[in-house]
């Protein structure tokens, strides 16, 4: 595919005047397409074409084997009326809190407090460590965390006392339990894994962002007698607009398309309490062989991601232009 897609080997004339260069540049602007083609071909064949097919399948009733039957929009109707499918979408909304909002907020707080600490030698090591979840397969994180959150797991062992106190306060039952098997706590449990995956990334990103803020801004505000809290809201937060936008975007995509963690840790249970669109698509399409319905859910998911991302991007870009 990469061989001689670019065939501009013919020698150029000696006339390298400025005007000659201009024509050359213009020729390049056309010839450049040959450089673009392999990437476009790979992208078109294995992303755009399947995406178009997803849309197509979503209008059919198809078991993947027998001839498909056109059903119009009825698959989409089912996505929004079938309780299990709809609740899967709701669950991913809750996961956004854990995958996106919590890591971003916690990351901001941690970055603000640890800014000086992370600059030192400890910080170099810490940065490598807290970025580790970005390198580890989510499947492995799922295995490790289902073990951690089990009845005999380390979470119960280490955090028994504080959890017990909080739960008693809220009247929410026994402190020692298998978290991923509980109706109330399975989804937050999956969310907790998401916090673990995303927190380091957001913290480091926001710390780096804070390092870029012009120190004179702080000096000026200190002269005005502003305290650290006002500084944070007046200077730090607005300056980090772009980093916060990135944190939210990356983590929201991860929340909405969650699959690996759920597949490994709960398989959607108990009683569908942790069912998410990604897993539902997989099970519908490949286990239940309802390809059309699965595709409709897939398209809804794609649109959902765009709907969540666009406002954030708009917010970030507006800040850049002003």
């Amino acid at each position: 595919m990469l061989n001689s897609a670019t065939t501009s080997r013919r020698p150029l004339g000696a006339g390298s005047t400025l005007g000659g260069l201009r024509t050359l540049v213009r020729a390049d602007r056309a010839r450049g397409w040959l450089f673009l083609l392999p990437a476009l071909a790979a992208y078109g064949m294995f992303v755009l074409w399947p995406l178009a097919n997803s849309v197509k399948y979503s209008f059919y009733n198809w078991d993947g084997i027998n001839p498909a039957k056109w059903v119009g929009l009825s698959n989409y109707g089912q996505v929004f009326t079938n309780a299990t499918l709809y609740s899967a979408i709701e669950h991913s909304g809750i996961l956004i809190i854990f995958f996106s909002f919590l890591p971003t907020a916690l990351g901001l707080a941690l970055a603000a407090f640890m800014r000086s600490a992370i600059a030192g030698r400890l910080g170099t090591v810490a940065r490598v460590v807290i970025f580790l979840p970005q390198v580890v397969a989510l499947v492995a994180a799922g295995i490790a965390w289902s073990w951690l959150l089990g009845y005999n797991g380390a979470i119960n062992q280490i955090f028994y006392a504080p959890i017990d106190a909080v739960l008693k306060l809220l009247g929410l039952g026994a402190a020692k339990q298998a978290w991923l098997g509980s109706f109330q706590f399975a989804l937050p449990g999956v969310g907790l894994i998401g916090v673990w995956v995303m927190l380091g990334f957001c913290t480091v990103l926001l710390t780096v962002g804070m390092g870029k803020i012009d120190p004179s801004l702080y000096e000026a505000s200190q002269l005005d007698g502003a305290g650290p809290v006002r500084e944070f809201f007046d200077i730090t937060l607005p300056s980090l607009r772009q980093e916060i936008g990135v944190c939210l975007t990356v983590t929201m995509i991860a929340a909405l398309s969650a699959f690996d963690i759920v597949y490994i840790s709960t398989q959607g249970g108990p009683a569908n309490q942790t069912m998410v669109p990604g897993l539902e698509i997989y099970l519908l399409a490949f286990t239940n062989r309802e390809v059309g319905l699965a595709s409709a859910l897939a398209i809804v998911l794609v649109v959902l991601v765009v709907v969540c991302i666009v406002p954030i991007q708009w917010y970030v870009n507006r800040g850049n232009e002003s």
Binding site: F46, P50, Y57, A294, A298, V306
Partner: peptide, 15 residues
């Protein structure tokens, strides 16, 4: 960049 893999995994299989 925003496309979740689940959005295209089904047609990818058949392709």
């Amino acid at each position: 960049l925003t496309l979740p893999l689940e959005g295209i995994i089904i047609p990818l299989y058949y392709e």
